[in-house]
Design a protein around this nucleic acid. Structure first.
Lengths: 147, 147
DNA sequence: ATTCCTGCAAAATCTTTGCAGCTAG
DNA sequence: CTAGCTGCAAAGATTTTGCAGGAAT
């Protein structure tokens, strides 16, 4: 999607507005987060950037992700096995469907979620601020291969 | 609930059936998981057991939780901040509502979830095996205190 | 008597932090 | 200039593993 460019610039602007400097490394990290349809891990991002920035350190990736998270422009997906992946396309909470074989992640459309949120708020008297919904299963592709 | 006793015995039986020995430490860990309404962390369990077993090590708690998980008798709740809590009352996936202030965890009833699962399966062509649904917010109790 | 389990310590992972030098604004 | 950033290495935090002695069956 060509919209990625807009989002990229919006985030850069937000960084500037909040007094953060625009370094090449930082730009590259934002670019990856915004452009990748797959949901990359810190390790993925770091490996990818090593090509353009051979000295790039993991610490820099972590620090920038913390920063971008704090601006609400990336969603952290923590998984049961302890690994983290990042969704920089859609930083607002939304459901994910994860293939436990190939690790592919798909974003489904579920209208009923908002309603459910209200139902929960009503039942528990909580003020709901956030949520996380993940489905785990096997994608059609992996289902075909017998192994 | 008095049903906890039944569940405890069921798990012990399952352990025996699978060729695992019933040690005092193991029994104590199962007992805590089954009886605690709150969702304890490994640290919680370990601290609690130190009273009865001064030499109890963290490794033993971890190993037994892995074992009990593998039998499907405890549900691991991994949180965004990297911490883990365990639900030994209801080991089947179910929604949680977590207070981000006092860390209280409530299990709401949501009938619409099964329907949503079907909706997802249909839309994504995945075979859905599992899911995780957590709501984060502030409980009524914490809402009252102004701090 | 075996086989499995525990406790201890060391290792493994993943993430954060301290610091010196560097760079964007 | 100078506040903030990077890279490196060290430190943290949490969970796992190797091993020797000990306990359950």
């Amino acid at each position: 999607m060509a919209d990625h460019k807009k989002r990229f610039e919006r985030i850069v602007q937000k960084l500037k507005d909040n007094g953060h400097k625009i370094t090449p490394q930082r730009m590259a990290i934002v670019k990856i987060l915004v452009n990748s349809e797959g949901h990359p891990s810190v390790e993925n991002i770091h490996a990818h950037l090593k090509k353009d920035f051979p000295t790039m350190s993991l610490a820099t990736v972590y620090r920038n992700i913390v920063l971008i998270k704090s601006l609400g422009e990336v969603l952290e997906l923590g998984f049961p096995d302890g690994s983290n992946r990042y969704d920089g396309n859609n930083p607002y909470p939304h459901p994910h469907v994860i293939c436990i074989k190939c690790k592919k992640i798909v974003d489904p459309d579920l209208e009923s979620l908002d309603e459910m949120k209200k139902e929960v708020a009503l039942e528990t008297k909580f003020k709901i601020l956030n949520h996380r919904l993940d489905f785990f299963g096997i994608c059609s592709n992996c289902m075909e291969q017998q192994d």
